[in-house]
Amino acid sequence: MYKKPSSRRIKKFYAPLNLIPILDSVFILIFYLLMSAQFVKIFEIGSDLPIMADSPPSNMKDALNLTVDVDQDEIRIFTTVNETLYKTIPLNSDGTFDLTTLTGILATLKGRYPKENAIVIRPSSLIKYDDLVKILDSVREKGSGKSSIDLFAQIIFGNLGG
């Protein structure tokens, strides 16, 4: 008669996983990422130069030819090839630009000319860069996040030569 072997003798020994090398590499990686981390999120707003062509485009009459003049006391919107004044937007009562109205007008124009993407901007010399960026944001899209509507994303500065 054989006896059942003692369970104590065949008890398995599980060696714990040696995590120290992984821990070392993770620590090195974390230090590297922390050292090179940039906590300020920076992005870009693109602008192209005006395209020079030898011959005028064929459908000039139908083109929106949207131009926005930014002065210190108002924003003027021009349309068509002859630069007809479409709207003038005065400053808000607190002296800031009325960007809500600007976006609203541009959204209306985008509705009429859905294929148009270009906008010519001519800021005056004394406009602050911060205000200019706000205007660029207003002409590029309406709203923010997933519910935003693209307006005129192709921004061209029309008065670089002075």
């Binding site: 300020v40 999120k41 920076i42 992005f43 870009e44 707003i45 693109g46 602008s47 192209d48 130069l49 960026v133 660029l136 500065f157």
Partner: peptide
């Protein structure tokens, strides 16, 4: 020919 204005998100 292309300008990119760097801004803070």
């Amino acid at each position: 020919k292309e300008f990119k204005f760097i801004v803070e998100g």
